[in-house]
Amino acid sequence: MIPVAFDYVRPESVDAAVALLGERGEDASVLAGGHSLLPLMKLRFAAPELLIDIGRLEELQYLRLDGDEIAIGAGTRHTTLEASELLDTECPLLPAVARTVGDPQVRHRGTLGGSLAHADPASDLPAAVLALDGTVVLRGPRGARRVPLTGFYTGVFSSVKEPDELLVEVRVPRTGAAGWAYEKFTRRANDWAIVAVAVVDGWVGLVNMGPTPLRASATEAALAGGASIEEAAALADEGTDPPADSAGSTEYRRHLARLLTRRALTTAGR
């Protein structure tokens, strides 16, 4: 299978990419690693007229401390997250989650920004950044803005990012020694999660429990109110709207959300 024909440009800078998006954002797709976009294009589920390749923009590839936060360029690959000593010390959830994404070949190409922008509710990293209370930085013709991930997603494959905006940076807090865990439940190691739960410092992110990545708010509130792990985990599926498919009924996903939250909280030691 092959994509429908398209135009291709490789802008030399973020400014140039943003300018292009300003002109042709409605017809264009941004190409980074391409491991979400190209499979859709090959199956002809997507057919953008223009691909704007930001995959080589070095100005989007960085990982640095910035006060209480870590600033990560959107073009940072999963494989870089995995190997980052800075993250291992300052935000160990993120590299651990990155290690569970796809397979090594996918992680060599896929980027953090691409994964977040794609807005797939079954994807690992969005829920992790959500659990971290992270922020994304969007740049467009009207300038840059910071959007907390809690307010970023609006539905399956959709977010508040406008077609002329580029996701340029992801910011996550330094969680240091806070307990964390990622429980990913799949049939095959390389499958998308049926359900996954990211926990860090009492915050809980859910994968594939609704049209967007979600926070288990009731669980978080219960934990903050002094509830036991068992009590809090039993609330993990509150307010969720999980899909049903051959891998799992909605009821099964709700059960998994509670089970995996309990296990993740236990591993994280709260």
């Binding site: 391409g34 491991h35 499979p39 090959k42 199956l43 070949q105 060599h108 190409r109």
Partner: peptide, 25 residues
């Protein structure tokens, strides 16, 4: 068609990559 099987894996700058999911450009 879905980047699942890895039969197309090659090394690009020394790293394994699925060449069915990379544009030549």
């Amino acid at each position: 068609d879905t980047s699942s099987c890895g039969a197309c894996t090659v090394l690009v700058d020394g790293e394994s990559v699925k060449s069915c999911t990379v544009l030549t450009v």
